[in-house]
């Protein structure tokens, strides 16, 4: 089994104006994804995130100071909107699972790695 974080990105849109049928389509797609993961691996965690305009970024400035700014890492048309943390047999399984998510999403599959010499408490 390999562990992947599946990052979900999409162009911000007005969820509150979505019709019940549209919403159900999203819910069904997520259910299908989770069903596939449960069947082939393990669902370790997941979350939906607030819109990018609610993000706060902390980065290190030129003088080494930690600067806090409003907004996400990068201003792009697509913004990260959620993630799944899963264990699946291989990348093909992760791709199959990702294809089950709502078609409006762009999905990035990232393998989780272990950092040699660091054991989290």
């Amino acid at each position: 089994m390999k562990r992947y974080v599946i990052l979900i990105a999409y162009e911000p849109w007005d969820w509150s104006s979505a019709t019940p049928a549209v919403r159900q389509g999203y819910f069904d797609a997520h259910d299908a994804f989770q069903h596939y993961v449960d069947e082939h691996g393990e669902h370790l965690g997941s979350a939906a995130l607030g819109d990018a305009d609610t993000a706060t970024t902390v980065r290190t400035g030129a003088g080494g100071e930690r600067v806090v700014t409003d907004g996400p890492f990068a201003e792009l048309a697509e913004q990260v909107g959620g993630y799944y943390d899963v264990e699946l047999p291989d990348l093909d399984a992760a791709i199959t699972a990702a294809r089950l998510l709502p078609s409006a999403y762009t999905v990035e599959i990232r393998p989780v790695i272990r950092i040699e010499g660091y054991d989290p408490q």
Binding site: D90, D92, A94, I113
Partner: peptide, 14 residues
Amino acid sequence: VTAGIPYAVPDAAD
């Protein structure tokens, strides 16, 4: 190796 690209033949459909 890192991304877990399988050493496998996929389903007939794929």
